[in-house]
Amino acid sequence: MMTGGIDHPLRVFVPSLDAYERFIRERIHPIPKIASINTSFAYGVVKQERVFPIVRG
């Protein structure tokens, strides 16, 4: 389950909140034309599956 709105989700794996902040400040903020950044954190798991099912039809 996630909180917040999403325009372009980006999953980031970092060892700490400090590392996340450095990533955002050093790698994401400098990208031109990014108007804003909203952060959401997962607080629970609804379904534990890493592969999307094949949809036929």
Rank of each mutant, 00 (worst) to 15 (best):
P32F: 00
F13S: 12
N38H: 15
P9E: 15
G5F: 10
R27V: 11
T39N: 01
R56A: 01
H29A: 07
A35G: 06
A19H: 05
E26V: 07
P32Q: 13
I6D: 05
S40H: 06
I24G: 00
G5Y: 10
R56Q: 05
I24H: 07
I54P: 05
Y20T: 01
H8K: 08
F52P: 01
M2N: 04
E49R: 06
Y43D: 09
E21F: 12
I28N: 11
P30W: 09
V46L: 13
A19G: 07
P30K: 08
E26L: 04
V55A: 00
R27W: 09
I31H: 06
P15T: 09
R50I: 08
L17G: 07
E26M: 02
G4P: 06
A19R: 05
P15S: 14
I6G: 00
Y20K: 09
H29S: 09
T39C: 04
S36M: 13
D18I: 01
S36E: 10
P9H: 11
V14K: 03
Y43E: 07
D18C: 00
H8R: 13
F13V: 14
V51W: 00
R50V: 09
Q48I: 03
S36W: 10
G44L: 02
E49L: 06
F13W: 10
D18P: 02
A19W: 05
H8W: 03
Y43K: 09
P30F: 13
V14H: 06
I37L: 14
F23Q: 04
R56V: 10
A35K: 10
G57S: 02
P30V: 13
I24M: 09
M1S: 10
I31W: 01
Y20G: 03
S40Q: 10
R50T: 12
R56N: 02
V14L: 14
